[in-house]
Amino acid sequence: MTEPAQPNVRHLDARSLRGLAHPLRMQLLDALRFGGPATASQLAEKLGESSGATSYHLRQLAAHGFVEDAPERGKGRERWWRAAVQGLVFDDSLLDDTSAAVRGAADLYLHEVATTQAREVSTWLGTREDWSAEWARSTDMSSMTLRLTPELTHELVEKMHALVDSYRDLAEVEEHPDAQTVRVHTHAFPFTTD
């Protein structure tokens, strides 16, 4: 995968991947990345977990540099957390690592990314009536099948990422009243038709 053109991008290596590759940890990091700073209790309520579990996994994420304290938000004993990274880059070579633990963590990570993306699409479908007709007309759930070589597939992925990145920091969008956070998922993989 290519590196996104955004600040605070973390390249996952064997050690950091093992610290992140857990479904709840990945959900916690996403909640902080997209929802902003929160306490373990707030995250527990949002994710339907116990505050003990969220607190433990937040400390594990912090030990690997994915989250950090947000002291400006805390009052008294209340501990606030924020994402320390905004983007993640997965190195496909982790799937071929000599360590079975690293390969397992890489596999778990990718499966959790796929599960999260499916959940996000399902959430959109379940809440699309809450959005304006203009937003409903602006969304896309396409499936296209091409016959390509690995090299052409890589080229296509690079071009899709470059196109998405070109929309990342459009200044005129920042203050626009209709602007919303938009998730873009891409998938490109070989498909057997037998």
Rank of each mutant, 00 (worst) to 15 (best):
T2S: 14
T2I: 15
E3S: 13
A5P: 03
R10W: 10
R10H: 13
R10T: 13
H11W: 07
D13A: 10
S16L: 07
S16D: 03
L17D: 03
L17F: 02
R18P: 00
R18V: 01
A21R: 01
A21F: 04
A21Q: 04
H22K: 06
L28G: 00
L29H: 12
D30L: 13
A31S: 14
L32V: 04
L32S: 02
R33I: 14
R33T: 09
F34R: 15
T39F: 07
T39C: 04
A40P: 04
S41C: 09
S41R: 13
L43E: 01
L47S: 06
L47Q: 09
L47D: 07
G48F: 00
E49A: 14
S50V: 10
S50C: 07
G52V: 09
G52W: 08
A53P: 01
T54E: 04
T54N: 03
Y56A: 11
Y56S: 10
Y56H: 08
Y56Q: 12
Q60C: 13
L61I: 01
A62E: 11
A63W: 01
G65E: 02
G65P: 04
D69S: 11
R77K: 14
R79G: 00
W81D: 01
W81A: 05
V85E: 05
V85C: 09
Q86P: 00
G87E: 06
L88A: 01
V89F: 06
D91Q: 11
D92P: 04
S93A: 15
D96R: 11
D97T: 02
S99T: 01
A100N: 10
A100V: 15
A100K: 15
A100T: 14
A101D: 14
V102G: 04
Y109N: 00
L110A: 05
H111V: 01
H111C: 05
H111G: 07
V113T: 03
V113I: 12
T115R: 15
Q117S: 08
R119H: 10
T123H: 14
W131F: 15
A136K: 15
S138Y: 03
S142C: 07
T145E: 11
L146K: 07
T149M: 00
H154I: 01
E155C: 03
H161M: 04
A162L: 07
L163K: 05
D165L: 00
R168T: 08
A171D: 15
E172F: 13
E174N: 12
E175F: 08
H176V: 06
P177H: 09
D178H: 11
A179F: 03
A179T: 13
V182Q: 11
R183P: 01
R183I: 09
V184C: 13
V184F: 12
H185S: 15
H185R: 11
H187V: 10
F191N: 03
T193G: 04
T193W: 09
T193I: 06
D194S: 08
